[in-house]
Nucleic acid binder design. Structure first.
Lengths: 343, 343
DNA sequence: TTGTAAGCGTTATCAC
DNA sequence: GTGATAACGCTTACAA
């Protein structure tokens, strides 16, 4: 049975110094690894150990203008891709002795802008932002961000901000070409909202592939889901199946694809025999769906890692010129699209 | 093209005060909603608006001893259950004007203890911890936590700490009884590591159900996975199938169950016809697997919400007696266990 | 090397 | 109501 009394006040540097018979300055130096006589060093260390001293984060930040925290703002932690990004970022941050402040924006632009503006409070040393849609307001805020900023996503070259982008347009194109190679001719697209940057890019990639292979474009084959969730993917696929026939289907992310698989099953269509399906993100879902899901790897974890590294560099050198990193897309072929009884 | 010059120094309260022709004290009062003459009020507000003033987080925390941050330490953001908890906690925290600091512990006890001890740095106002395994060292740290603490999980009654627990033992029992009701007689258990609290509880629940219904216990039917992942669930299920025959399977969480479904498919066993499967957590995966997964809802989101609320209360009143909240388990029946050709 | 002292930007306690 | 002013706990010139 432990007590619930008020905590004893946390030990301060002053107490450590007194206990070690040195000045606060010396104590501070020791604890920051600045040159001191071995004797004072051991005295301070012993004193600190004895009282269980740990520096107060607020005081240290106020003085040193470094919080030791970075923020990560993403649309939705529940989406496996973003979850894996969060994990990767937390890992790298942790290795650098840095804490992670998490913001779920719900893909709300106002929320995103609010976070950007809140940087003026200096509660973090920098921000990694994953916007779903980059508006003019975003670009303006990027330019005047009060702390180092790295954007994960596509940003016009003219905007001076560090960014790491996936090539989802090419990724989409890759996957459609893959389906064509498999002998599919009526390839549907289940896209996310066109107002989002990914939705826009993936549509272009889909069209690119058709154009490059001189396929006729048929808008009946294109359907837009309410959002990037499995449920929306299921609904969109059902709408698609109601009005047309298809033998291939590209979905703008894995969640949409998971929903699509379900819809196809309900419609009695075999995957991949009757309809081959490809998702995008190569998230943890790909081995959980059945059949296992062919998916475009957009290098989410890699992008996340680059983003933190870029951010930490930027924090150390705020003047360095903005950097753009592009991560290539790679198709991971699995059961949902590999051949069919009669290819 | 925006610039990458050094930021102009952020406006301070002193500047706002000067601009408004009042003292810093008055400016502070206005911005904290403390009684002031309407005239000074509007002057200060106007000045603050004009320079885009936002209070410096570190300075405010140092003085007020409140950081406006809470921490959430969980085993792994990539597990959908924890991701949904993180989301729920972030939401509630956000509503209360509070930021969320995320720690992925990787289910490492040392990491968890480290976070508890780090509370002395006072970088957050409180912590919500999800330990996978509560050791004696944990209990000791709970007792001397340097900040309000809420544990999501099972903690001995004798330990004075706020906690919100799921009833996974009963949940496991429920699901096994459900399988028995469906006419299943050889019911396997794919468990997570027994060193974890959940693993331990779920095993007990499984045995409870067998005992209550006077079934013979057969240890061949029990298999322990390496960890709580889909891949480990697949491997464990394959081991199980290699040495025995079963017509029902309870898995200690949804990820394990997803892996099990895959293993059963590879073994050519139909679900639910030949083997009925039940998972646990009722996570976002249940509608993505095929067949859709019967699962025990342990009220993760509800527990997460309770946890934040408890924490925020505790922060406001550190002296109140510790509270224990228990959230009931509820079985959600889906296709993976509902009847069979010959029930 | 070490100590003294000046802040960092707030909030809160006083007198007025 | 308001304005000086003293903390909060730390880092860092500067002087010794």
């Amino acid at each position: 049975m432990s007590e619930t009394f008020e905590e004893p006040p946390a030990p301060t540097l002053a107490e450590v110094a007194k206990l070690a018979n040195v000045s606060v300055a010396s104590a501070s130096r020791v604890l920051n690894g600045i040159g001191t006589r071995p004797e004072t060093l051991s005295q301070v260390l012993a004193a600190a150990e004895q009282v269980g001293y740990l520096p107060n984060a607020s005081a240290r930040s106020l003085r040193s203008k470094r919080t030791g925290q970075i923020a990560f703002a993403l649309p939705d932690v529940s989406n496996p891709v973003y979850a894996s990004m969060a994990r990767a970022i937390q890992e790298v941050a942790h290795e650098h002795g840095c804490r992670l402040v998490l913001h779920s924006t719900g893909a709300d632009a106002e929320e995103e802008l609010g976070i950007l503006r809140d940087l003026r409070r200096r509660f973090v040393d920098g921000l990694i932002l994953v916007p779903l849609n980059v508006t003019a307001a975003h670009l303006a805020e990027f330019g005047r961000a009060a702390a180092p900023l790295v954007v994960i996503g596509t940003v016009p070259e003219s905007v001076a901000v560090d960014a790491v982008a996936a090539d989802s347009r090419r990724g989409a194109s890759l996957s459609v070409k893959h389906l064509l190679t498999q002998g599919r001719r009526r390839i549907g697209l289940v896209n996310g909202p066109l107002t989002t940057t990914p939705g826009h890019a993936r549509r272009l990639g889909y069209l690119d592939a058709l154009r490059a292979t001189k396929q006729r474009r048929d808008d009946d084959l294109i359907e837009v889901a309410e959002d990037f969730t499995a449920e929306a993917g299921r609904a969109a696929t059902l709408r698609l199946l109601e009005r047309t026939r298809l033998d291939g289907l590209f979905c703008a992310n894995d969640l949409l694809a998971a929903g699509a698989l379900d819809a196809l099953r309900h419609a009695g269509l075999g995957v991949p025999d009757e309809v081959a399906v490809v998702g995008m993100d190569n998230s943890g879902l790909v081995e959980i769906t059945w059949p296992s899901l062919t998916s475009v790897d957009l290098g989410s974890v890699k992008r996340a890692r680059y983003a933190v590294e870029l951010l930490l560099e930027r924090i150390d050198d705020p003047l360095r010129a903005p950097v753009r990193i592009h991560v290539a897309a790679e198709l991971k072929i699995r059961a949902s699209s590999s051949g069919r009884g009669a290819a």
